[in-house]
């Protein structure tokens, strides 16, 4: 099973689990299992079009899936998948 690292902001939706073992062969399958097991994750991991939103980055081992095959990126048994929230913002202009 692949290991999925849950970032701190989303752990309240996974019963405070920081690591989960998920049987999946692709990122989309992994997200499907994850949001099935923890439905509250769905609004954070998928946008209205069913895609990973721009403010969430997903790495398979050290590689960003946006540089691979996006949601179709293959996961192996020993893969580590890290979900990384994009941390960004801008100044307040009146």
């Amino acid at each position: 099973m692949a290991t999925v690292i849950i970032p701190t902001p989303l752990r309240k939706f996974t019963n405070n689990n920081s690591k989960l073992a998920i049987q999946a062969s692709s990122i989309s399958e992994m997200i499907h299992h994850l949001t099935n097991d923890f439905p509250e994750l769905k609004k954070h991991l998928l946008d209205a079009n069913g895609k990973v939103p721009s403010f969430i980055n997903i790495f398979v081992d050290d590689d960003d899936i946006r540089n691979l095959q996006q949601e179709q990126t293959v996961i192996k048994e020993n893969s580590t998948v890290s979900i990384v929230p994009a941390i960004a913002g801008g100044a307040y202009r009146i």
Binding site: T8, F55, G90
Partner: peptide, 24 residues
């Protein structure tokens, strides 16, 4: 997370809100 707002109030912008994560 902390960040500064040079010459702006310490109020989150819409850009801050859109990118904000729960819990933090």
């Amino acid at each position: 997370v902390y960040h500064s707002h040079p010459n702006c109030p310490a109020i989150p912008s819409e850009q801050d809100r859109l990118a904000a994560q729960p819990y933090f």
